[in-house]
Write a protein that binds this DNA or RNA. Structure first.
Length: 302
DNA sequence: GTGATTTGACCTAA
DNA sequence: TTAGGTCAAATCAC
């Protein structure tokens, strides 16, 4: 028992060093293989990507294991401990499991239904950005609704969504949708965190505002062509999101490679202080007519 | 059968 | 203490 703490510290140190080394490898790969990115954009398969993903997994595993070791020794804050999930470690195929740590954390109480929320941590982070919109709009990501609540001083339910890829990719993005006005309907969408997932949607339809001051309700209005009536199987991009939300659709012609702008790319191109440039390069080519969608507001009782 | 939503209970920050 | 955020079993939809 006396030797356990030094052993844990030793293992933790090794894990952190391992993570650092792998991260360095990853940087080398990313820096020296820029061309592969363009190959990927062109649709050519990229043999380096699996290797990069493996490196990323190893980095995450190393740091997670280190945190688990700290957690098992009560040397870590509750905040950090709450962010650690055993699934994150065990789900990785390339990550050596720390069985003794897992066993330490899996007390009988955690398996008991009444105590299964021990790891629950209510978020206290500030919103990343907000937008008000007269209609529920698709933002290019897949969301899964995990709750709704009637809040004080609110006439309507607030809905809670998290990224569909929270479990499989660890994406921490969340959003809340609050109907703030009945007639005409007005919705306030508050986003928390950023997407780290590889969204299955076309990158060109991902349009997050560049800053909270840029209300997307002024620019996110898209044409709604007949293809929206196709099934999920025929066009999964269009209806793959939560059933309560309408979709924003990019005209088919907007596919030229040099016209693709994700918000990140837009920032990298120094447009962030020029909203008109953003509109010209990103929003305007996409805007035509407001879309229509049956049962769009069904969940909100409109 | 599988995945998404609903809903009541649980948990925590203020 | 309480309002708001989250969990997870039950239910629904495809």
């Amino acid at each position: 028992m006396e030797n356990q703490v030094p052993n844990v510290k030793k293992a933790m140190e090794e894990e952190l060093i391992r993570g650092r080394d792998i991260a360095n490898q990853l940087v080398d790969v990313l820096v020296h293989d820029k061309l592969s990115y363009y190959q990927e954009v062109e649709g050519v398969s990229n043999p380096i990507l699996p290797f990069v993903e493996d490196l990323v997994n190893k980095v995450l595993c190393s740091f997670t294991n280190a945190l688990l070791l700290l957690n098992s020794n009560n040397d870590v804050s509750d905040d950090v401990a709450a962010s650690i999930t055993l699934r994150d470690v065990s789900s990785s195929t390339s990550c050596p499991k720390l069985e003794h740590v897992e066993e330490t954390c899996k007390s009988p109480n955690t398996l008991n239904t009444k105590n299964r929320r021990r790891g629950y941590k209510r978020k206290s982070i500030a919103p990343t950005w907000e937008k008000d919109s007269s209609m529920l709009t698709e933002d290019g990501y897949l969301w899964r609704k995990y709750g709704q609540k009637m809040t004080l001083n609110a006439k309507f339910l607030r809905s809670y969504y998290r990224c569909t890829h929270k479990n499989d990719q660890g994406c921490q993005a969340m959003k809340q949708v609050q109907r703030i006005q009945g007639d005409p309907p007005l919705f306030r969408t508050t986003y928390y965190g950023h997407h780290t997932c590889k969204t299955p949607l076309n990158p060109e339809i991902i349009l997050e505002p560049l800053s909270p001051s840029l209300s997307s309700s002024t620019l996110l209005s898209f044409s709604f062509n007949n293809s929206i009536t196709k099934s999920k199987q025929e066009n999964p991009f269009l209806l793959a999101s939560t059933k309560h939300e309408p979709v924003e659709v990019i005209p088919d012609g907007y596919t030229a490679k040099n016209e693709l702008f994700s918000p990140e790319e837009f920032l990298l191109n120094d447009y962030e202080d020029n909203y008109s440039d953003y509109l010209r390069h990103v929003a305007m080519p996409l805007c035509t007519e407001p879309l229509e969608f049956d049962n769009v507001y069904e969940a909100f009782g409109i």
